[in-house]
Computed example of a mutant assay.
Amino acid sequence: MSYIFEPPAIPSVAIAGSDARFPVRRIFCVGRNYEAHALEMGLQPTRGEPMFFTKPADAVVESGSTIPYPPETENFHYEGELVVAIGADGFRVPEEQVPEMIFGYGIGIDLTRRDLQAKARDAGRPWDWAKGFDNSAPCSALTPIKKTGELTSGEIRLSVNGEVRQDADISQMIWTVREIVSLISNSMHLKKGDLIYTGTPAGVGAVGPGDRLVASIEGLPELTLTIGEPE
Score class of each variant (00 low, 15 high):
8 P>K: 08
179 E>A: 14
125 R>H: 07
203 G>R: 08
49 E>P: 00
180 I>T: 15
219 G>I: 05
53 F>S: 10
77 H>R: 11
125 R>I: 00
106 G>K: 03
92 R>M: 01
85 A>V: 09
80 G>N: 02
51 M>P: 00
30 V>I: 14
63 S>Q: 03
99 P>A: 11
107 I>W: 01
136 S>W: 07
154 G>Q: 04
120 A>F: 01
185 S>L: 02
137 A>P: 02
28 F>A: 07
10 I>W: 01
105 Y>N: 03
146 K>M: 12
202 A>Y: 07
157 R>I: 02
221 P>I: 10
102 I>V: 15
20 A>E: 15
217 I>T: 06
23 P>L: 07
153 S>F: 06
61 V>R: 09
121 R>C: 01
225 L>H: 11
195 L>I: 09
176 T>W: 08
117 Q>S: 05
7 P>M: 06
135 N>A: 11
12 S>N: 13
64 G>M: 10
40 E>H: 12
164 V>L: 08
133 F>G: 11
214 V>P: 04
44 Q>G: 04
227 I>Q: 11
48 G>L: 10
226 T>K: 10
214 V>A: 12
9 A>I: 02
222 E>I: 00
1 M>H: 05
10 I>T: 14
29 C>A: 15
38 A>N: 11
96 E>N: 06
5 F>R: 13
76 F>E: 05
17 G>F: 10
147 K>S: 14
93 V>A: 02
73 T>H: 05
4 I>R: 03
227 I>V: 15
8 P>Q: 11
9 A>N: 05
138 P>F: 06
150 E>D: 10
198 T>L: 09
51 M>A: 14
221 P>N: 10
125 R>Y: 01
